[in-house]
């Protein structure tokens, strides 16, 4: 690819991710409102979409306060980590066959590495605040993230086995021949979905910030744009996980094969990618609207006693099928 195109894709991804994260602030509340028989934010601008801008202005204009009892270095470093790692994670997402920032031969592992580094933001935020609620939130997130990283990595190994590559472009190309992995790797998909929610600590598994027990968990002491970065990181990870689910399990830029060829030829691949990612984001928001938060020990035992055996069995069967059939 030409250098110019790569630069365009990089800036497009950056702007797109930030813009999408800002719009998601409004979109999530609006959608939650509909699911809870409310209207949601609808005052600022048409359909209330100005809320995204208003929120950004509010966060930028707020006092950026560092509590005197906090560990200054750690406190300031923490919120940047999640945004940086999540943006780096977008580097390996293939939007179409030819439109991506980098097609690493270890793309999948790179994504896993970036999500595992994102833990530090929560962890150090909790550690640097010198606040007991923040510390408890950080502790919870450390245990939760380290546990669910295991299943997240393992659940993808079946996909890697079938496609024989860590490269995300290759994985999607395999799906063009073999059908989407959501069918052949259904349990892998389920586990990856759960682990994805836990990694981005979205609502059913948002125990690090469980507001009715821990005030706000790890970001209790944060305000202004530092809190904004945490929020941005959360939405970025939501988008990243959604696009990863799309890429790995729902055929990325491929259209559904049951549609007639006329439609598949007419709709450009990137539309399919964004449509699937958007649907996935909506599903995450639906989870938030519908499912209550589990207790912390329930979360851990659910992970280790159900998801881990499920992934291992899935891996075993996939390996056996590949080897003997």
């Amino acid at each position: 690819m030409e250098e110019l195109t790569i630069f365009l894709v990089i800036y497009g991804t950056l702007l797109g991710a930030f813009g999408a994260a800002a719009v998601l602030v409004w979109f999530e509340r609006r959608l939650l409102g509909f699911w809870q028989d409310r209207l949601g934010p609808n005052r600022v601008g048409p359909f209330g979409i100005g809320l995204a801008l208003a929120d950004v202005i509010k966060l930028l204009a707020k006092e950026d306060w560092v509590p005197p009892f906090s560990d200054r270095l750690v406190f300031i470093f923490a919120p940047t980590a999640v945004v940086i790692t999540m943006l780096l994670g977008f580097a390996v997402v293939p939007y179409t066959e030819h439109l991506f920032i980098a097609d690493l031969n270890i793309g999948l592992l790179f994504f896993l590495g970036m999500t595992s580094l994102a833990v530090y933001s929560v962890l150090l935020g909790g550690l640097g605040s010198h606040n007991k609620y923040a510390l408890l939130g950080g502790l919870r997130s450390a245990a939760q993230m380290v546990s669910y990283e295991v299943f997240m990595g393992l659940s993808l190994m079946g996909v890697v086995m079938i496609s024989g590559s860590f490269s995300l472009v290759d994985i999607v190309k395999t799906q063009a021949e073999n059908g989407w992995f959501v069918i052949s790797q259904f349990f892998g998909f389920i586990v990856f979905l759960m682990a994805g929610i836990a990694e981005s600590h979205r609502l059913p598994f948002d125990l690090p910030e469980a507001e009715h027990e821990l005030v706000a968990g790890f970001h209790t002491e944060y305000s202004g744009m530092k809190f904004g970065l945490f929020m941005l990181g959360e939405y970025l990870s939501l988008i990243l996980i959604s696009s990863m689910i799309t890429t790995i399990f729902f055929g990325g830029w491929l259209g559904p094969s049951f549609l007639p060829d006329l439609v598949l030829d007419f709709v450009p691949p990137i539309i399919w990618f964004f449509a699937k990612t958007g649907t996935c984001i909506c599903f995450f928001i639906l989870l938030r609207a519908a499912i209550p938060r589990p207790r912390y020990d329930q979360l851990m035992s659910f992970g280790w006693k159900l998801l881990l055996p499920l992934t291992l069995v899935n891996l075993l069967i996939t390996g056996a099928v590949l080897l003997w059939l």
Partner: peptide, 19 residues
């Protein structure tokens, strides 16, 4: 693997202990 295992998992446990 260095990022995933060392920086992403083992050091998290170190930080956990420090906490």
């Amino acid at each position: 693997l260095e990022v995933l295992i060392y920086a992403g998992a083992i050091m998290v446990l170190f930080v956990f202990v420090i906490m």
